[in-house]
Amino acid sequence: MLTVEKLEAGYGPMQVLWGPDIEIKEGSITSLLGPNGAGKSTLLKTVLGSVAATGGKIRFAGRDITALPSHKRVDLGLTLVPEGKHIFKEMTVFDNLMMGAYRQEARIHRKESLELVYSLFPLLAERKNQKSGTLSGGQQQMVTIGRALMTKPKLIMMDEPSQGLAPKIVLEIFETVEKLKKEIGLTILLVEQNAAASLDAADYVYIMHEGVIKAQGSASKIKASDEIREAYLGL
């Protein structure tokens, strides 16, 4: 569904990605792990298009999207739950969700999408007229995930969705991620600090270090390898 080949990207003169190759299968949860500063967020941003690729290729749903602007990538069914949420704090929960259905294709399906979001997060239905900036951290994360679902995505990339949340909420977030795969058939690329929980949720795992992929394999294989766990995951 998504293939990243020899991707290079960075910020100005500083190159961050040094040619990682990644392949994501439809209907799977793929986890991307790695230490701080490895370039995980940069990879997701480059796939979305908010950071420009300086080399390599990104293919999504059979198309080369390397040169496509990000709004066109969203049209194709790609979206991101960004690190640090980036919700529209001054707007109501409802308006945040509706902005997720901004593109034409998503707009047509906004009623069904909204029902789906409210069924996943009933609390958002209760709070729909509340300014989203006044919600708790966990609730704001629900808004971010809900907003991403409103774009009618095929692939959702999530950048540390459990960051800074209480353990109980973290559990809920991981449950939601698995639900999205099982019940809606979404494909998910998950970046997490919480390596143990990600290994449990994921089908396939990539480990990134200093802008390159150091190891990969099925989640069970990575879990079984003491070497990889000790070297990169600190487990």
Partner: peptide
């Protein structure tokens, strides 16, 4: 207004920032 609040938030909604 979305762009005023967050470029990245706007981008993931498919807004042509």
């Amino acid at each position: 207004r979305c762009v005023v609040e967050s470029d990245e938030g706007a981008r993931v909604c498919g807004i042509d920032v």
